[in-house]
Design a binder for these strands. Structure first.
Lengths: 241, 241
DNA sequence: CGGTATGTTGACAGTGATCAAGAAAGGTGG
DNA sequence: CCACCTTTCTTGATCACTGTCAACATACCG
């Protein structure tokens, strides 16, 4: 049987002592959003927005089981959707990066917690307004459909990945992150190794060891623990599949 | 390193020798569908249907990478969406049961193969017709949205499950299956243990052993290998989380 | 009835988790 | 700027769950 308490160190036990410091709401000019790649069909959706609200790293945006009154969009930072288990472990189903609409559901409550993985700026959309708008306006419905579809694709890839070896999982994660961040040179691991581990279904130790191993094999290079350059993307990609 | 060839027995090597026997198309009266719980909003969608077509067990409906010209609905039987890896392993992302609309994507190709896990009756919908219908008719868009949303929920639960122990995975799978089949007394494992194993990210041996273990613990009872009654659902549910 | 496909059980090995301890990074107050 | 503290990351030793290999049992089907 797996142990109940996984992190005996004092440092580790802090992990779930989320600070829950809800950042003071700091409303940006609405032009910010429209300049940020939103246009045309999204206008209708954006007309029901609230916020954006700023969250500090590790603060909870929605608790699992909380009423699903809102759907969200990341303006800045990284957000994680996760579930905490009774045995103290945690699983991160997905990370969300700027521009992504997430938290959509047709149920009354959110099945997962939504937390800020870094300091983050979040936009709110009232779900029932969105829903009734969708049933009248096909543009809104299509925006939601597009969001759900891309989230579906993303989580499908993820579910394929977590049956692979640790090396594949980490390599795939780095390649994905690099693609999402559209960084040319190096990948910035915006989230902690603990977050990466909980996302990939590994322990932090294994994540650390695997990164070290990839570095020794000259596939990546580290400037710091969270600043990684993918030296040999082709070789990394070859690890997958 | 994991071994390349996983199933050395002659019997096992047959696993991917899919028969690809496309069943002759046998068109049912359209009333069949309408009697089968489809109504109202779904009408518009159903007006663009083709089929249903009958597939034999293990035949391929769509190959991974195949053009995504159609979206599908299970009329009867069970369908699996899966990916075969180069090392001979296979991952089943999801099973689909009667009434489910699946295979929706906004990409040009299907990322996963779609195969009949049992003899199955499949309805086809032209994707581009569906897409253009969705951009005009919000009812169609909402039907797609609903399908995508419930698929999303399903795969989220699944991705949470595959980080758990083998016992949790099997117990959860049995409970889910029982709920989906709405069978009162016992669960009928319509798919092979191999399919279950590939879905849960376990080996067939582990699936078999785990089921035996659950039986010895008096949580379940077996009439045959594929006919299982959940004696103590509460205890099974307690294994989860 | 033989032959194939599928499921079961045992022995053993390997990947990754756990436990433990130390190193590096980041933040705060002097 | 430095000392101090907390958090995060790294590395090593050991253990266990689950995969692999092997053999057999059972079910299915012409």
């Amino acid at each position: 049987m797996r142990e109940i308490v996984r992190a005996p160190n004092a440092a580790r036990q802090q992990r779930f002592g989320y600070k829950r410091v809800f950042g003071a709401g700091s409303v940006l000019p609405s032009s910010y959003i429209f300049e940020n790649g939103q246009k045309g069909a999204e206008r209708a959706v954006l007309s029901v927005r609230r916020g954006p609200i700023r969250y500090r790293r590790n603060s909870t945006i929605v608790c699992e089981g909380g009423t699903a009154d809102y759907v969200f969009m990341v303006v800045d930072g990284v957000v994680r959707r996760c579930k905490a288990f009774q045995n103290g472990t945690r699983a991160i189903v997905a990370f969300h990066t700027p521009g992504e609409l997430f938290g959509w559901t047709d149920e009354l409550t959110h099945a997962l917690s939504i937390e800020a993985a870094t300091d983050a700026l979040i936009l709110y959309f009232k779900r029932n307004v969105l829903m009734s708008a969708a049933s009248r306006d096909h543009k809104v419905a299509n925006t939601l459909l597009r969001a759900a579809t891309s989230e579906l694709r993303c989580i499908q890839l993820h579910s394929l990945r977590i049956n692979q070896s640790a090396k594949c999982r980490v390599a795939g994660f780095l390649l994905d992150l690099s693609a999402r961040m559209a960084e040319t040179a190096n990948v910035d691991l915006l989230m902690s190794h603990q977050d990466v581990a909980d996302h990939l279904g590994l322990s932090i130790e294994t994540v650390s060891r695997t990164i070290t191993e990839l570095e020794r094999a000259c596939l990546i290079e580290r400037a710091s623990a969270r600043t990684i350059s993918l030296i040999n993307r082709a070789a990394l990609a070859r690890l997958l599949d």
